[in-house]
Amino acid sequence: MDTLPSTKQHLKVWNDHLMNVGRSQDRQAFKALFEHFGPLLKSYFMSKFPSQHSVQMMDELVQEVMIKVWQKAMTFDPSKAAASTWIFTLARNTRIDMLRRQSKYATTSSLETEDIWDDTTEDGPYQLLQHNRDSSQIQTSLKQLPEEQSLVIRKVYMESKSHSEVAEELNLPLGTVKSRVRLAQSKLQSLIKR
């Protein structure tokens, strides 16, 4: 597998690949994206749905995300978001999609997941986006969080657990989970903005 992206150069590679898929349906670039992000996406889905679902289904969810990457790559704007950020939002929405498909009520609605959770980078606030930092910087910031905060934030983002689910699992009062999330977010945001 690829090594962790640690330089701006490396991150630019994924942005460029996405641009090429968007501009010219570049299959080589798409394959490179698949090989890098596919296994990470699978890991993401597996942490939300451990053992309940077949391995095959996890692969299908990964494919579903990558189809969206292919179809929507022309809307990707690297000045607004990093490739990993955008792909994270697609994965998040694919997971929500799957849960909505399982609910009998969702079909009564005219709303698609993307109407509720925007996955475009197009209409982001321009003037505010000097903060599009590379993910290695955020990874460094994540490592600086106290263990109790990073544990909670990881469960929230990667295991897709609601605050109350995290509270239950860690046997903590909901208020404690909420304040750890807030502390972590304000720390991350101050580190990112710097």
Binding site: L4, P5, F37, L40, L41, Y44, A81, A82, A83, S84, T85, W86, I87, F88, T89, A91, R92, N132, R133, S135, S136, I138, Q139, L142, I153, R154, Y157, M158, Q185, L188, I192
Partner: peptide
């Protein structure tokens, strides 16, 4: 962005 960085 935090989500994207964690994904990595």
């Amino acid at each position: 962005q935090t989500g994207g960085a964690m994904l990595e």
